[in-house]
Write a protein that binds this DNA or RNA. Sequence first.
DNA 1: CCTATATTCAACCCTTTGGTTGACGATCCA
DNA 2: TGGATCGTCAACCAAAGGGTTGAATATAGG
Lengths: 110, 110
Amino acid sequence: MNTRLDLVFSALADPTRRAILAMLLEDDMAVTDVAEPFKVSLAAISKHLGVLADAGLISRERRGRVIWCKLEPDALREATVWMQGFGAFEPLDLDAFERFLEAELPDQQS
Amino acid sequence: MNTRLDLVFSALADPTRRAILAMLLEDDMAVTDVAEPFKVSLAAISKHLGVLADAGLISRERRGRVIWCKLEPDALREATVWMQGFGAFEPLDLDAFERFLEAELPDQQS
DNA sequence: CCTATATTCAACCCTTTGGTTGACGATCCA
DNA sequence: TGGATCGTCAACCAAAGGGTTGAATATAGG
């Protein structure tokens, strides 16, 4: 069990893969263009993209000769939820925050 | 570079280690007690604890014969910041939110 | 001091991972 | 059709990861 979380975290554990995700944050990219800034071979980048795709972090779509890579940030959600359990994030309890504001601010309409 | 982030994400990539962190969320624990629910050997758990400590996710302190393990959730902060860049979290830009409130609410003193 | 408990260390095993190179399939275009 | 481009596949290699067992260290307590 927990396989999905394993895949996501281990995909994120590699700096090359994190760099790829950061690049895809700006725009969808072809595999060749993803590989261009890196010193390793195209085949190595292709493998990294496979790992990212297996984790659900990107999707790939062929258009003509070119395969376009697209970030899928929703795949981070499960990992996010897990991490939230450790207080690493402000829990962003907006309801509580709104209640705080209502109690704190002077009434505005009688 | 990025070594710290590598260590944190790869530490989180193993389900046994995530389970250990979840256990430590409840309370500090001795190594032997951490190992008890798992099927693997004590030495294996000791290695996992080493990985977690190297990532900064736990600290260990010897008291007598017993080594107590303590969760260090702050070590997740850097990973959190990285993930926030991908829209997986509400960014919780409190400064921006406060500016929004100041602009939105009627003046309260002159 | 001697023994039991708590934990790590060391050596080993097998599998996975990240990299390489070279061949291959697919597509565009002249 | 034929050549160039895009990307993956296959086979291989070295290093790292997670596991084991058995010896070693440290401390507590009779």
